[in-house]
Amino acid sequence: MADAIIEGIRERVAAAIRVNNSVGIQVPEARHEDLLEAVFSSMCKNTQDSWTFVSVSKTFDYLTKVFKEGAQFANIRFIDCISRAAGITDLYKNCIYIESPVMLEKLILEILHNFKGIKKDAEKYIVIDSLSALMIYNDPEIIREFISLLLNRSRSENIHVISILVEEEMDSNKIIQLNDKIIVLRDSFID
């Protein structure tokens, strides 16, 4: 049953991102983990694509424990925005650590750098988990500026952006409106 839900989410997200440059996914906290599982399964399945996963809500260490194999794939690169700020000094080779979630410019630079030298025909994706977590550390206005800069840059380089917003953490829904397509996941069903 759970697998079916996850598969359902995955297909839905995959379909949306195929035709749109940026997709915002609004998700209730209770479904957040399922969504991540769906995203990870997408990333693992499409090894010819290049992925950058930006984690603001969970440490990379945690992700490696939960999604064991997902954290090992060569086509997936991780950027961890919270370990350093939380005083965790883990050091994994396939993860880039940002000192603080307020260093948004550095985050953009690192994201864009991750796609340098990627084969032309590869599809490129960014996953941000989550915008709502970034908003805990930053003012909503600067996140707006951040996401619009990121979307503009990635659009020009043909990179798709999937950004996650956790419903309960949102204090403004304006940001998600910047996306080309919005998916709203409900607690009990997918609409």
């Binding site: 948004l104 410019e105 630079l109 003012d139 600067i142 800069l149």
Partner: peptide, 13 residues
Amino acid sequence: IELLPLLKTTEFE
């Protein structure tokens, strides 16, 4: 050294 336009909102605020 890498540069990116500074997200300005903060300073103003």
